[in-house]
Simulated assay, not measured.
Amino acid sequence: MSNANPVDHALIGYVRVSTLEQHEALQVDALRAAGCARLFTDKASGKLERRPALDALLEQLRPGDSVVVWRLDRLGRSLRHLIDTVQTLEHQGVAFRSLTESIDTTTPGGKLIFHVFGALAEFERDLIRERTMAGLTAARARGRTGGRPTVWTPEKLRVARQLLDSQEHDIAAIARVVGVSRASVYRALRRT
């Protein structure tokens, strides 16, 4: 536990290297030079959702602290993840700094840059959604529907209905005979 006065605001560094072959020395040196007394280090791919050191860092933050990274890509898995993480920090009263890109959310310029990033990420998400919907509409116009093809043939459906109507078989037995799951039997018989 630190002997620091609780009103002191800490610069806390976060280091991430993607592979075991990479070394964190460059990031550590830069963060120490920036004044970070504590560092949290993850040796994991940025694509991983859970990073233990980042989670530990986020749990220990206090309002007024600043999270410092060497480069933006060290913190976020994607632009959306980066923006969400920085917004979470902002809601906690924690600032964010990236040394390489010279972004500091305690300054008006730093806040502006992050709002622009957020707008771009939202625009990208909307474009993807729009393209997906247009593609689905075009496919439907050509008679194609999404999803897996049905395993139910008219013959299988007839057999399942006969077995159920005989009241000698339960749903599990019908599913085994027809070669489908119980849930599929329930859905198919509910539709007919």
Rank of each mutant, 00 (worst) to 15 (best):
L120M: 15
E122H: 13
A34C: 11
R129V: 08
E24N: 11
S45Q: 12
H115K: 10
T100P: 00
H23L: 04
D126Q: 09
L127P: 00
D84V: 09
L79H: 06
L39G: 03
R74Y: 10
R71Q: 12
D42R: 07
F123S: 13
I113G: 01
R77N: 03
S98C: 09
L72C: 07
E49I: 12
D104Y: 03
L20S: 11
H81T: 12
V28S: 02
L48I: 10
L82T: 15
A25R: 03
L89S: 05
H81S: 08
Q60M: 09
E49F: 06
V28Q: 07
R71V: 14
A44I: 14
A56T: 15
Q27Y: 08
V86Q: 08
L89K: 06
I83N: 07
V68A: 04
D65H: 02
R71L: 08
R131P: 14
D104R: 05
V17K: 01
F117V: 15
T100H: 02
K43S: 03
G35H: 13
G93D: 07
I12L: 12
L26H: 10
S102N: 02
A10W: 09
F114C: 09
V94P: 06
Q60S: 12
R16F: 00
V116A: 02
A44P: 05
Q92K: 13
E21L: 15
Y14E: 04
P52F: 08
L99Y: 04
R50N: 12
E90G: 06
I12S: 02
G118Y: 08
I113W: 04
L58Y: 04
D84Q: 10
L79C: 08
V94K: 07
T88Q: 14
V94M: 07
A44L: 13
